[in-house]
Design a protein around this nucleic acid. Structure first.
Length: 397
DNA sequence: TCTGGGGTCCTAGGACCC
DNA sequence: TCTGGGGTCCTAGGACCC
C-alpha cells in the first residue's frame, strides 16, 4: 500500500518569528531582512516576501541585499524565540500523526499512511487544511502544506502551495506533476550537478523522462543515473521516521575581522569548545571524533580531525584535542583566519562504559572531568551563563 | 557581490585485518 | 623478489539543504 506523506513548512519562518517577538518593531516593517548585519559579514537568513520583490534571497550577503533594497531593515535572528515556536508547531503536528520527522527548524514530514480510519476517510487535502488552521490558531505561525506518495512529491508540492496554502498530488498524478519542474529545482540537485546536467542537454524533468534508465546511467554513472531516473518519476523510496537523533553537533564563528594571532585564535577555540561540550551534555551524548575547521582570509577552508579511543563530553577533553588540531592546521598554513569551527561526530548515547582507562594522555577524559562539567552546567542553569568563565576550568590540578 | 551557522550524505585513498 | 581480495575504520574534502 502506498504512502501518504505531508510536508508542513513554515512560511518565511524567521521573518514571522521576528515580527511576533517584537510586534512594535519588526512587526511593523514590511521590508524586513532577518540575519547578520553587514558589519558582521552576515548573510540573509530569511527575507520578507515584500523584499523578495527586489530580488533579495536568503543566503545572500546582507550588504548585497541592502544594495538591492536600501529601505529594508535588518534584524538579528531571534534564536531562542524561533526554537520555542518550532517546538510549539511540532507539538500541534504530533496530534495529527504519530510519525512526525522534523527536517529542519521550520519544516516537518508527517506520515499519514494508515490514518484513513482515524480521519473517517477524509481527503488528505482536507486534513492538510485543518492542520494549517490549527497551527495558525494555536501558535500564530502560518504554514504551507504539501502532500503526496513520496517525500520528494510533498517537498515539491509545498513550494507550489506557498504562501499559506495546501497542495496535494493525488496518487497516479506524480509524473504529470513532475513534468512542470526544472531539474535544478529537485532537492539534491545543486548548482554543480545542475551544470553537469545542463552540459548533457538535461535541463527539465521532461527531458530526463525521455531517457531510459540505462541511458541515464551511461551518462551519469550507475548511482546518479538511477537516482535521477527515479526522481524524475517522483519516486524516492524514503520513509518518514520519528525520533531521529543528530549524527553530529558543531559550533563555528565567522569573525567580524580576520584573526591572525595564535593566542587570540586559541581563546576563540576555548569558547567554541565550551559551547560544543555543553551542547553534547545537553543532548546526552558523547563524541569520539572531533574536527576543527579553519577558513582563511582567502576563503579556503581546511579541516583536521582526530578520533579518540573513547568518547568525550567535558570542556577540558574537547578543548585539549581541539587545541592540537588547531595547531596542526596553523602549522600547515599560516594566514589570517575569518572563521573557526569545531564539530563532534561519532556520537554515542553517553552510556557506554569507560573504555579509556588504558591510555593516559591529555585527550583522555576522566570521571572527574565529567563531574566537573556537569557541576558547571548546574551552576550555569541556576545562576546564568556567565556564572563560571570557561577559562577557569581548563587547568588540571 | 563578497560570501552565516547548523546540519546530512557521499567519495576516495590509505591503514589495517583476515 | 613481486603480489589476491574483501571489509572496516579513519581522514579530508565537497555537494547539498534550510
Amino acid at each position: 500500500v502506498e504512502r501518504r506523506i505531508l510536508l508542513v513548512d513554515c512560511d518565511q519562518f524567521f521573518v514571522q518569528c521576528a515580527r511576533l517577538a517584537d510586534p512594535a518593531g519588526a512587526g511593523c516593517m514590511a521590508l524586513l531582512l532577518v540575519g547578520g548585519s553587514p558589519e558582521h559579514r552576515g548573510v540573509v537568513t530569511s527575507a520578507s516576501y515584500e523584499t523578495r520583490a527586489y530580488g533579495v534571497r536568503s543566503g545572500m550577503p546582507t550588504a548585497q541585499a541592502l544594495r538591492l533594497c536600501p529601505a529594508a531593515h535588518v534584524v538579528p535572528v531571534p534564536r531562542g524565540y524561533c526554537g520555542r515556536k518550532s517546538r510549539e508547531v511540532r507539538a500541534v503536528l504530533e496530534r495529527f500523526s504519530p510519525v512526525v520527522e522534523p527536517a529542519s527548524i521550520d519544516e516537518a514530514y508527517l506520515d499519514m499512511s494508515g490514518t484513513e480510519a482515524l480521519y473517517h476517510g477524509e481527503a488528505l487535502a482536507v486534513t492538510a487544511a485543518r492542520i494549517r488552521a490549527q497551527v495558525l490558531a494555536e501558535t500564530a505561525i502560518s504554514v504551507s502544506v504539501g502532500g503526496g506518495t513520496a517525500r520528494l512529491i510533498a517537498k515539491l508540492a509545498v513550494e507550489r502551495a506557498k504562501p499559506a496554502g495546501v497542495r496535494i498530488v493525488e496518487p497516479g498524478g506524480e509524473i504529470e506533476f513532475m513534468r512542470g519542474f526544472r531539474l535544478a529545482e529537485l532537492p539534491g540537485v545543486g548548482p554543480v550537478f545542475a551544470a553537469q546536467l545542463e552540459r548533457l542537454g538535461l535541463s527539465t524533468v521532461e527531458t530526463a523522462l525521455q531517457l531510459s534508465e540505462v541511458a541515464l546511467c551511461g551518462m551519469l554513472g550507475q548511482t546518479r543515473g538511477r537516482w535521477l531516473y527515479r526522481r524524475a518519476r517522483g519516486v524516492d523510496g524514503e520513509g518518514v521516521h520519528a525520533g531521529v537523533r543528530n549524527r553530529s553537533h558543531s559550533r563555528e564563528e565567522t569573525f567580524a575581522h580576520d584573526i591572525d594571532d595564535d593566542d587570540a585564535l586559541e581563546t576563540q577555540l576555548l569558547e567554541l569548545a565550551a559551547r560544543l561540550a555543553s551542547d553534547l551534555r545537553a543532548h546526552g551524548c558523547r563524541a569520539r571524533t572531533l574536527t576543527v575547521k579553519l577558513r582563511d582570509a582567502d576563503f579556503r577552508t581546511r579541516r583536521a580531525s582526530r578520533t579518540l579511543p573513547g568518547a568525550v563530553e567535558s570542556d577540558r577533553a574537547v578543548f585539549a584535542t581541539a587545541k592540537l588540531l588547531l595547531r596542526r592546521l596553523r602549522a600547515a598554513r599560516r594566514a589570517p583566519a575569518r572563521l573557526l569551527g569545531i564539530a563532534a561526530t561519532g556520537l554515542d548515547g553517553g552510556v557506554a562504559g569507560d573504555q579509556l582507562r588504558f591510555f593516559a594522555d591529555a585527550s583522555a577524559e576522566s570521571e572527574r572531568d565529567r563531574q566537573l562539567a556537569r557541576t558547571t552546567d548546574r551552576l550555569r542553569h541556576r545562576f546564568g551563563p556567565d556564572a563560571i568563565r570557561a577559562g577557569r576550568l581548563l587547568d588540571r590540578p
